[in-house]
């Protein structure tokens, strides 16, 4: 379980958990679960397109994730963010369906892209993931205060001269970065559970933003490590474990905070 090809899986899993746990706190603060679900789904089209022209699916993800994130931000900047998200996601997926119909991809490979594959990570992809994750963490550190303030009150932020529209776009790019890192391992359909479940559970327990990030990372790490191990042992898809364990954390945290009241 810890040798050979699995080394990459553990390494990438760890990277993904850290970065998703940190960024997820802002996802939950900003009520951005739909966007975080939509961007990875949209990036699926990129992966399908990449396999069509014979390049690594990570390249496709890296192109389509920011395109999806920025179109959601741009078209939804005045109002109806949810409607625009639904439409952008659907359109990108339609493109994905088209690319699939052109290619001779096996169902198993498409399945892996949608629901995750711990064994599919090459060395090159590992280094790319590490680089992207580093960039995402650096971006969070740099944007930390404006990101937090705009999440609390756009008006108070505007009075301090923050352009919340700009911060929002930067946040979407951040989501795209995490997407590119995480989708090859966790899959396009279930990546968002890592960015919603652990932070939602963490915030029920911890009161400060930094503390919530730390606990959220810890929960994400446990979730992903357990999922990788279980997926390796049972041979069942990792997405199954990530999705159900993520939901279980939220239920447990809700029960915990209900008991304390």
């Amino acid at each position: 379980m810890f040798s050979g090809i699995m080394t990459n899986a553990w390494a990438v899993g760890t990277i993904v958990a850290v970065v998703a746990g940190v960024v997820g706190v802002f996802v939950v603060l900003r009520s951005a679960a739909f966007v975080v679900h939509g961007v990875p789904l949209s990036s699926f089209a990129g992966a399908a397109g990449a396999s069509l022209i014979g390049v690594s699916s990570v390249v496709g993800l890296a192109v389509f994730a920011p395109v999806a994130a920025l179109s959601i931000g741009w078209f939804g900047r005045r109002r109806r963010r949810d409607v625009v998200t639904a439409l952008v996601v659907a359109t990108m997926l339609g493109l994905g369906a088209l690319f699939l119909s052109w290619s001779n991809e096996y169902a198993a490979q498409i399945y892996a892209l949608l629901f995750g594959d711990v064994l599919g990570v090459t060395d090159a992809e590992l280094w790319l993931s590490a680089g992207l994750a580093g960039a995402a963490l650096l971006a969070v550190a740099v944007m930390y205060r404006p990101l937090l303030l705009t999440s609390v009150s756009a008006e108070a932020a505007a009075a301090r001269g923050i352009r919340s529209g700009l911060v929002d776009m930067l946040f979407l790019v951040l989501v795209a970065l995490v997407t590119t890192t995480a989708v090859p391992v966790v899959g396009a359909l279930l990546m968002f559970t890592l960015m919603v479940g652990p932070p939602a559970a963490a915030r029920a327990v911890v009161r400060s933003p930094i503390g919530a990030m730390a606990l959220s990372v810890a929960i994400a790490l446990v979730t992903l490590w357990a999922s990788i191990a279980a997926s390796y042992v049972t041979n069942w898809p990792i997405g199954f474990y990530v999705g159900t364990i993520g939901a279980a954390w939220v239920l447990a945290a809700r029960a915990w905070s209900a008991l304390r009241r």
Partner: peptide, 21 residues
């Protein structure tokens, strides 16, 4: 509510992954 939607969605999609598998 979007966290609620997300959590239900995540659990059910996880289960779908298994069934499709």
């Amino acid at each position: 509510r979007d966290v609620a939607t997300g959590v239900v969605l995540g659990a059910a999609l996880g289960l779908s992954a298994l069934l499709l598998y």
